[in-house]
């Protein structure tokens, strides 16, 4: 019975099926909001699904110079990475499907996988645009990864736990302490946007410069799964940010699920707004922004949190 329940949790809710459905829904909401903010009509609700199934049905073309194995494997690895990370993030209340002390590190490592697969995909596509895109992906990763880790780990200093569920649990019991983490929350939003390669951090995929960067040689099924994995990554990241920085829970499962949607959609709205109102930054400008402003901000947050922790203890 317990095994069945576990399987249900991993595969259906709040596991893989929920993740993918919500990912498509989030893509729709993101595109629709983006369009409405730009004075456009935007897509119909089923367009992300339709896009996915259309791409699945298209012919997959891999040119001779490209490494077919890597081209085909990378989307799956990327999707597996994000899906696994999602298991450790609480959706209902404060308990994830699995959790153990230190799972936040695991989540962050799993979330690095999509970026690395993007790099490998671009590099082994053996196309000039893809190669430049791949090098931009990795450059950008070195820029945002450090502030992202620091700002996600800062709250755990006060909570005194290295588990995502633990952090959520702690802050839902002391919601006012979450206010201390507001600067880290801002840093997290910016770096998450950067990790998702969305404007203003979409240099790796800049259409007008390098066509579509690492994905330029992708067609058909691998492209479909890469896009799906990017959507899932977005949901996982906003869920993680909401679990760590917006830990308001009621204790009632149904209300908690509704709260989860309210919180994640609010974050999604902020991310969409950010990509609507900004121009694309150059990679060197992204690096400057991350290292000159975000890292010191995150560092300051850690110091403050350490002091608070000492004061609480």
């Amino acid at each position: 019975m317990e095994v069945l329940q576990m399987l249900f949790k991993v595969l259906l809710f709040p596991g893989f099926l929920f993740l993918t459905s919500y990912a498509f829904a989030a893509e729709y909401i993101d595109r629709k909001l983006h369009a409405r903010m730009q004075n456009r009509k935007g897509p119909k609700w089923y367009i992300p699904f339709a896009d996915f199934f259309k791409l699945i049905g298209k012919q997959t073309i891999i040119h001779d110079d490209a490494h077919a194995g890597i081209i085909k494997a990378m989307p799956v690895v990327s999707l597996a990475g994000v899906a696994t990370a999602f298991i450790y993030i609480p959706v209902v209340g404060s308990s994830a499907v699995f959790s153990f002390e230190g799972d936040i590190i695991i989540v962050l490592y799993f979330l690095s996988l999509p970026v690395l697969t993007q790099f490998l995909a671009g590099w082994y596509s053996r196309s000039l645009y893809a190669t430049i895109g791949a090098s931009r992906v990795i450059t950008q990763m070195f820029a945002y990864e450090v502030p992202l880790f620091m700002c996600l780990l800062a709250p755990s200093l006060i909570a005194n736990t290295w588990s995502v569920s633990g952090i959520t649990q702690y802050y839902s019991e002391h919601p006012l302490y979450a206010l201390i983490n507001l600067p880290a929350f801002a840093v997290a939003l910016i770096t998450v946007q950067s990790k998702l390669s969305k404007a203003p951090f979409d240099a790796p995929e800049a259409e007008t410069e390098i066509v579509s960067g690492p994905y330029v040689e992708y067609t058909g099924r691998p492209l479909a799964f890469f896009r799906m994995s990017a959507d899932c990554e977005e949901v996982v990241l906003i869920s993680l940010v909401s679990a760590i920085f917006l830990p308001f829970l009621s204790g009632n499962a149904v209300i908690d699920v509704i709260l989860y949607f309210v919180k994640t959609l609010a974050i999604l709205f902020v991310l969409t707004l950010m990509r609507t109102v900004t121009a694309r930054l150059r990679v060197n400008q992204t690096v400057t922004l991350c290292w000159r402003y975000l890292v010191p901000a995150a560092l300051l947050q850690m110091i403050v949190n350490l002091i608070v922790r000492g004061w609480l203890a």
Binding site: M37, Q38, N39, R40, A199, P200, D202, A206, E207, T208, T276, V277, T278, A279, R280
Partner: peptide, 13 residues
């Protein structure tokens, strides 16, 4: 110009 620098909102407006 907006489109070239990835600022599609300006383009649409």
């Amino acid at each position: 110009a907006g489109h070239e620098i990835g600022f599609d909102t300006l383009f649409m407006y």
